[in-house]
Amino acid sequence: MRLRSRPQQPPPTAAPVPRGPVPILAVRKLVKTYGHGDAAVHALAGPVDADGVEQGVDLTVHQGDFVAIMGSSGSGKSTLMNILGCLDAPTSGRYLLDGIDVGHLDEHQLSLVRNRKIGFIFQSFNLVPRTTALAQVELPLAYAGVKAAERRRRAMAALTLVGLADRADHRPNELSGGQQQRVAVARALVTSPAMLLADEPTGNLDSRSTDDVLAIVDRLNAAGRTIVLITHEDEVARHAKRVVRLVDGQIYEDIRQAPLQGLPPALQDPVEFASHTLHVGHVRAHANGGDR
């Protein structure tokens, strides 16, 4: 509620943005139904026309955007996320990722798409057990067939970017939750994917680690990386340039909080942004800390 009442936010604009180049992500008439007949669950349906036919969900995301997909549980946001991540196939509808029609790809091509086009960040970190942070970040590059030396260089660069260069040889069980998630972010961005797909990235983190991770995501977006983030927390969503709200399998509202071009909200005026933090408890302490 407070999110939309803030006066300094630009007025909400309707999506999709009518712009020239090929969108990173374009979803047309997407429907996902689990089960059959009476027992069918319509996870993603979109508006229903007069004849009761599901029109499906339409969504377009452009290069450089930072989209938060919000919704309560059962709203279809996880289903949408799985389809966007090429982990699941839609019942009907088209999905174009960076100009590629994903629906026509076979298993092997899908694994290539996941490797090259998408960087995943999961709620439960999902690091490979018993593997050092460096090897963890090298893994997608290894699957892409990058040579060892190049792999090491790029993985170290990604770890440096998330501030974990000194933890390169630590295994997941030797890292805190926030550090694990930062390794996951490094792993997601190391292949320079077209889109970073984050599913509740801060859901398992304390507020301090949440800020750390979101700060990295903000910086990545400022550097031009496209980010699609799924969350149910307003505090997380207010970092996004655009908020898409899902209710009962259809898009309920689509609000632009910051222009597509330019910095994400958190970096436009950091002090002001921090003062409006929704974190309970260490609000002031953190805001003061952020001033310096």
Binding site: S111, L112, R114, N115, F120, V128, P140, Y143, A144
Partner: peptide
């Protein structure tokens, strides 16, 4: 996880 990050 491995499949999600692109293991064929």
């Amino acid at each position: 996880i491995r499949k999600a990050i692109g293991a064929p």
